[in-house]
Simulated assay, not measured.
Amino acid sequence: MKIENLKFDEKGLIPAVVQDARTKEILTVAYMNLESLHKTVETGETWFFSRSRNELWHKGETSGNTQKVVSITTDCDQDALVVEVIPAGPACHNGTTSCFTETLVEKGKVGSVGIIPELVEIIEKREKEMPEGAYTTYLFNEGIDKICKKVGEEATEVVIGAKNRNPEEVKWEAADLIYHLLVLLQEQKISVYDVLEVLVERHQQKRASTKNTK
């Protein structure tokens, strides 16, 4: 796929959906023209075209909230982009992580991997502020031995629930295991995203190996 094959509108613009490469949260929707897209590719940071000011703008140039580009993909019609980034700060001028903060319709809650970055942020904050009475504070105060013990206990509970063929128990204990594992990673100063990167690398290696054997 080449940039020259993209379909810009009559004003020479193409919509760009900016997404956090790690959390997969939609950060903002902006527009690019050919020049801003080339600058984005060349610099590795997002550049857009402001329709109101009729000029290029480099995201984070004044605020410092730049966006490091991880990937750029286009849709089947080649008239829209998804730009995955690692943000250095809030995407919105209002200071929020995402520009999408207003809920129009919400019909119940669903489980989402989006809870992982939320928990990571809370655990980091707990270790920094150590609020009295918080369970996470208790774990950090007790130290690595207690945290490791809890990870082991929760893993065992998952195994017991699975052996008992008890789906409800497995769900609850697996949730406890994930939480305590995140606490352990924070204590070790290991980013959960680095762990996920290992999974991605393994998957890609396995996929490449499978292709080579065909």
Rank of each mutant, 00 (worst) to 15 (best):
R51L: 15
L177W: 01
V195K: 11
Q204P: 03
R22C: 12
E173K: 01
S36N: 02
E154L: 00
A175R: 01
K211C: 14
Y179P: 04
N164G: 14
G95R: 08
T96R: 04
V41M: 05
I160E: 14
T97Q: 11
K125Y: 03
L6G: 12
T213D: 12
E102Q: 05
T66E: 02
K107V: 13
V85P: 02
L196Q: 14
A155F: 01
W57G: 10
K150I: 14
V82K: 02
M130N: 10
E127K: 12
L56H: 04
Q204S: 15
K206E: 08
W57N: 08
E55R: 02
T74D: 15
N164V: 11
G114F: 09
P15N: 14
A91R: 00
V69H: 00
Q186A: 06
W47P: 01
T40W: 00
R165H: 10
V83I: 05
K68D: 09
V120F: 09
R53F: 03
F140A: 13
E197I: 06
V83R: 01
D79C: 08
G44F: 01
L185M: 05
S209W: 12
G89L: 07
F48M: 03
N94Q: 15
A134E: 07
G44V: 03
Q78P: 09
Y135V: 13
L13P: 01
K24S: 10
L184V: 03
E121F: 14
E118R: 03
E10L: 14
K125C: 06
A175H: 02
K107I: 15
K68R: 15
E102C: 09
I115M: 09
E118K: 08
T101W: 10
D75V: 15
C99Q: 02
G12L: 07
Q205F: 06
Y193M: 06
A30Y: 01
T96W: 02
L177Y: 03
T136G: 08
L139N: 05
V29M: 11
W47A: 03
W47Q: 03
C148L: 05
K125R: 13
V105W: 09
Q19N: 11
E169S: 10
Q78Y: 04
E154G: 02
H203I: 12
D176H: 07
L199V: 05
S50A: 08
E102R: 11
L81G: 04
M32G: 01
L184D: 07
K150E: 13
E154F: 02
R202A: 03
Q186G: 12
L139Y: 00
Q204T: 11
T96V: 13
G44D: 05
W172S: 12
K171D: 13
E25H: 01
F140N: 08
Y135P: 08
